[in-house]
Design a protein around this nucleic acid. Structure first.
Lengths: 234, 234
DNA sequence: CGATATGTTGAATACGGTCAAAAAGTGTGG
DNA sequence: CCACACTTTTTGACCGTATTCAACATATCG
């Protein structure tokens, strides 16, 4: 289980902060909160300045369009920062829990103050945002230049890699609470086509996703068809 | 013309750094460099740790795929940071100039050191990365959930907004050195389809892009069809 | 058990891709 | 200034992946 302290001490800052520096849970007005499954934690266009660091559980960060469609930007997992913006103003994405979700909450104001007075935290935040950048860039490549098969394969491998680090995936097997509809909104596809693509991936003995359980069957072939290189997740 | 000092002093840090704090051009081992048009400045998979801050000119940040296709991640413009990663290791994107490109170059090592010792810089970097995040997220929405028309319209409006801030666009008119092929790699389309889409946008009297010159014809209608809201660019 | 969300399948359609060729623009050197 | 090569833009015909629409099956949950 990742705590805020662990987050701050984790790579690449690598434990330069002592426990005494920060305390454990009560550092910079941070509140630990737990949300029920399928709660909306913050809404696009809201004007609060809360910032979240995911402790455990699954969440969705998404943008809704006037047409009613939505694009899921990311599925933040343990240790990920959500909601840090360059300036104050209305949020441009919503955050919702899928499973029960534990988060640390602080405010932009407080976090910026802490960053200003403690360079190590600033560095940690910057690195964390840089990683998120890399993930978003890869999602962009996925949606922009890979077909449904590769795209889906790639995302399932990304999840495997991200969950492995939290000990939530072993030997290519992990629990994934996403529905096919949510998967579609992540991959820029329709629900129907996601369904067909998953069937093909199963038939081709590459990866199986059924009843919330993902199982990588032939990693070599899967990595190859996805064109996956996990370097960007470091 | 945006200088590094201006970048650091710009919103949202807003001039909290005095000129004396940083000097002008010689702060943290920064070298100002100028690249010729169509130079490759750094390559995907290279293992150097250079970081760039764009001073002036147009650049492309892109990822190549095994198939030979590529997805352009962003078109960094004045003040944007390029190449900051969470850890050392091979780059996952290439950077190339389109026009003559002036950049400040430093290294990850030096920048991190500076961030650690000076919170205001850390905050500035974090905010800059947060803004880049928002741009990438919007690109993802664009490619994932908008059709060719909206997508193209949206991107041309984004450029208008970004260039306006640098004084490079007035009254919806700006010079854009991108080829239709490059535009295609940004939008996740083919060159042929970009060509047809631009023709339609022109015929619909929304926006015209010819011979490197963009002209917003009917902003209201254009904003509407694109579903554009520039909030994310702040 | 009935209601609602999720998953599955088929048939028809459309948006954007592929292939191919020509036209227009740009730059270079003789 | 023109000839030549090359890049960029434009257009047409055809094709394919993913969407749309519709119906039904299967979980899930109060």
């Amino acid at each position: 289980m990742q705590t805020l302290l662990q987050f701050i001490r984790s790579q690449p800052v690598g434990g330069v902060l002592s426990k005494a520096d920060w305390g454990n849970n009560d550092f910079l007005g941070v509140a630990a909160r737990v949300y029920k499954p399928h709660s909306v934690i913050c809404r696009q266009d809201d004007d609060d300045d809360r910032i979240f660091i995911v402790k455990s559980g699954w969440a969705l960060l998404y943008r809704g369009l006037p047409s009613g469609e939505r694009q899921i930007i990311d599925t933040p997992l343990g240790g990920d920062i959500v909601g840090f913006r360059s300036v104050d103003g209305p949020r441009f994405a919503s955050l919702a829990s899928i499973t029960e979700l534990a988060v640390y909450e602080t405010s932009r104001k407080e976090l910026v103050e802490a960053v200003l007075s403690e360079g190590r935290l600033g560095n940690k935040i910057a690195c964390s945002l840089a990683r998120l950048n890399a993930i978003l860039a890869e999602h962009l490549v996925n949606v922009g230049r890979r077909n449904a098969m590769c795209r889906t394969a790639h995302f399932l491998l990304e999840l495997d890699e991200r969950l492995s680090k939290a000990g939530l995936s072993t030997h290519g097997r992990y629990e994934c609470p996403l529905t096919q509809h949510e998967l579609a909104d992540i991959l820029g596809l329709t629900t129907v086509h996601v369904n067909r693509t998953l069937r093909e991936l199963r038939k081709a003995d590459l990866v199986s996703f059924r009843a919330g359980h993902v199982e990588v069957i032939n990693r070599k072939k899967l990595v190859n068809t996805a064109g996956f290189d996990g370097e960007y997740l470091k």
